[in-house]
Amino acid sequence: MAGLGTVEPRPPRGHAAGRRVRRELDAVHRRRDPGADRARDGRRRGGAVTGGPPVGHVPTARTEPAVPLVSVVLPTYQRADVLGRAMRSVLAQTVTDLELLVVDDGSTDGTAELVADIARTDPRVRYLVQPNGGAPRARNRGVAHARAPYTAFQDSDDEWEPTFLERLLPVVRSRPDVLAFTSHDVTHLDGRVVRLPAAHVPDVRRRILHRNLVSTQTVLLPTALLRDVGGFDVHLRSVQDWELWLRLHGRVEIVHVDEVLVHLHRQADSISETAGYRRSLRRVVRRHWRLLATEPGALRHAVRRATIGSRPLPTPWRALAPRRHAVEAP
């Protein structure tokens, strides 16, 4: 596992910007652990570091980095213009016992330099780099490297209020099977601001079968639960969060904290109800149709959204189309 403020894995040779950023981050790490320089110099000189400790040397216990309380996973791709805002909203939390794992999904727009600048002043930042593979894969990479017992997610173009973790932590620490989330608002490109959910949701486990009420950036939950169910489905282009909540449905209590503590900003390339969105919905329905069928109207509503615009309606879905009453597996 990489140290704080280091790049993992290293950028390929020949990538000048990547090499420069790596040198800068390594310098930050050496300032936090000056013994690393002395050990390396000793090895180069063939001195006592390579051959063992000098006579009379009393070994001291190695100090491992303290395990944080919360790991915040932030995937990013080509968002250097807004990433700093998202990172600062995490690092400004009133709960300071956290690590921020920025997972760069193959950006080429100066993201590495931006993260390096912030990491120089805050050792809680960890920087992971991977080839472009999509947000679900990047989130799973962050969860795999998370050291804390609780995990939250942020997106590179959104913001948290400073008390986001402060309000959610008491809920999830009260018992081991709780997923907590807050309300959020969405600022659209035309300036409209919409609050979601619009009001308190007392029975989230039932309501979430009809539609996704829980945005990824609004959640705090035990890290072990995420790992137990395998994280996000990397084959979904959208609705990955809804599919994950459905997989967790029988294992957790979902608690809504009715405060707007997260601000989402719609970008021009945000995914809407496109063909890719509908394909993802169809995959979710195929996987979870039995669960959706336990709540009156939920399965039919999901099928309607997943097949809208399909002419003719795909054969396996016809039995679930509106105004039909039979419930069959898609």
Rank of each mutant, 00 (worst) to 15 (best):
W242S: 07
L236K: 04
A224R: 02
T216S: 08
V219R: 00
Q217D: 11
N212V: 10
L226C: 11
V219W: 01
L244D: 03
L236C: 12
V234D: 04
T216R: 02
G231D: 02
L213F: 15
W242Y: 11
L244W: 06
V229A: 05
L236F: 14
T223W: 00
S238H: 03
T223E: 00
S215C: 13
F232S: 01
T223C: 02
P222V: 05
G231R: 01
S238Q: 02
G230F: 10
V214M: 15
E243M: 07
L221D: 00
F232A: 03
L246K: 01
L246R: 00
L220D: 01
T223G: 01
R211D: 13
H210L: 15
A224D: 05
L236V: 14
F232V: 03
V234Y: 05
R211K: 09
V234C: 09
D241T: 12
V214P: 13
N212I: 10
D233Y: 06
Q217V: 15
D228Y: 08
H210D: 08
T218G: 08
N212A: 13
Q240A: 15
G231Q: 03
A224Y: 02
V234L: 04
R211F: 15
D241H: 06
H235L: 14
R227E: 02
T216A: 10
G231E: 06
N212K: 06
F232M: 05
T218N: 10
L244G: 06
R227N: 02
V214Q: 08
L246E: 03
W245Q: 01
T218L: 11
H210E: 09
L221H: 00
L220Q: 02
N212F: 12
P222W: 01
D233T: 09
T216P: 02
L244M: 13
W245M: 08
G230N: 09
W242M: 10
L209M: 14
R237V: 15
R211M: 13
T216G: 07
Q240K: 05
V234E: 12
V219N: 00
L220H: 04
L221G: 00
D241G: 07
D233H: 07
L225P: 07
W245D: 00
L226P: 05
E243F: 05
L236M: 12
D241P: 07
S215Q: 09
R237E: 10
L220P: 07
E243H: 06
S215T: 11
T218I: 11
V234G: 03
G230C: 11
N212Q: 09
E243Y: 04
P222M: 04
G230V: 11
W245V: 08
R211E: 14
H210G: 10
Q217R: 05
F232W: 10
S215I: 11
G230L: 10
L236D: 08
L213R: 10
T216Q: 03
V229G: 03
H235R: 09
Q217P: 12
L213E: 14
L220M: 06
L209W: 07
R211W: 11
D233G: 06
Q217L: 14
L246D: 02
L209T: 09
G230T: 10
L221A: 07
D233C: 10
P222R: 01
H210S: 13
E243S: 12
V239S: 13
H210Y: 12
L213Q: 11
V229Y: 01
H235S: 15
L220G: 05
D228W: 08
L225F: 06
S215W: 08
V214D: 09
L236S: 07
H235Q: 11
L213S: 14
L221Y: 00
G230A: 13
